[in-house]
């Protein structure tokens, strides 16, 4: 299988006043195409920092992060932005939809940034995704008119609309009730299987981990591979 993400000896340090906090220590990790991977660990363990590295929104203090064959620490801001737009989809804990746009406009937004499809093609793809996340009746509603679960479905549709190779989800179920949370995970797993999209998401919820193909434990910025919880 193709290695879609590769981290080698990654260290991430943040200055905190006169101190330096080490968020990630000597991380070595390879993720293959089509994996459904969970990064698990308690709060403050470095899950989000690790996702930020893979998501090209942050760069390592040392070591290398390769995403789709590109060393992100060697890329400038513009190139990293292009990489995110073309290859990555993001799902956030707090949904992070643009409140001013309708659900459909939110999903269409990354396509507008890409600027490669015609309006008709964009509308067709958006409609398909709404069908996929089972949200067609809510297509014209604004985020504040949707429930938490519906918002996260819109966020998933937005993450998938550009047909990225990797979807990153930072605690996607943290703000949802348990039933809705599991439904969202089921949906993501279903999409992973149908589309062969690589999913990497962070959680500290044991029930969510059960659904993962691979669980990577992180504690105090250090990795330890584990089997999916049974």
């Amino acid at each position: 299988m193709e290695n879609i993400v590769e981290l080698k000896q990654v260290v991430k340090e943040y200055p905190l006043g006169k101190l330096t906090v080490r968020a990630l220590s000597d991380i070595n990790l390879t993720i293959e195409k089509g994996e459904f991977t969970v990064i698990a660990g308690p709060s403050g363990s470095g899950k989000t920092t690790l996702l930020n590295m893979v998501g090209c929104v942050d760069t390592p203090s040392s070591g290398s992060v390769t995403v789709r064959g590109q060393r992100i620490e060697q890329l400038g801001d513009r190139a990293r932005t292009q990489l995110r737009l073309a290859e990555l989809g993001f799902i956030f804990q707090t949904f992070n939809l643009i409140p001013d746009l309708t659900a459909a406009q939110n999903v269409e937004f990354p396509l507008l940034l890409q600027g490669t499809l015609t309006k008709k093609e964009r509308q067709r793809r958006v409609a398909e995704l709404f069908e996929l996340v089972d949200l067609t009746p809510q297509i014209k509603q604004r985020p504040n008119e949707l429930s938490g679960g519906q918002r996260q479905r819109v966020a998933i549709a937005r993450a998938l609309v550009t047909q990225p190779g990797i979807v990153l989800a930072d605690e996607p179920t943290a703000n949802l009730d348990s039933v809705t949370g599991l439904n969202i995970i089921d949906l993501m797993k279903d999409l992973n299987q149908k589309r062969q999209t690589t999913f990497i998401f962070s959680t500290h919820d044991q029930r969510v981990m059960q659904h993962a193909q691979r669980v990577i434990q992180i504690v105090d910025g250090c990795l330890s591979e584990g089997a999916p919880a049974s």
């Binding site: 929104v57 995110r84 737009l85 993001f90 643009i98 990354p110 940034l113 550009t162």
Partner: peptide, 16 residues
């Protein structure tokens, strides 16, 4: 600010 972070993360350039 969070909206800016979101749109930057999903691929909006600084100029945009």
């Amino acid at each position: 600010t969070r909206e800016i972070g979101t749109v930057r993360a999903i691929g909006m350039t600084r100029f945009r």
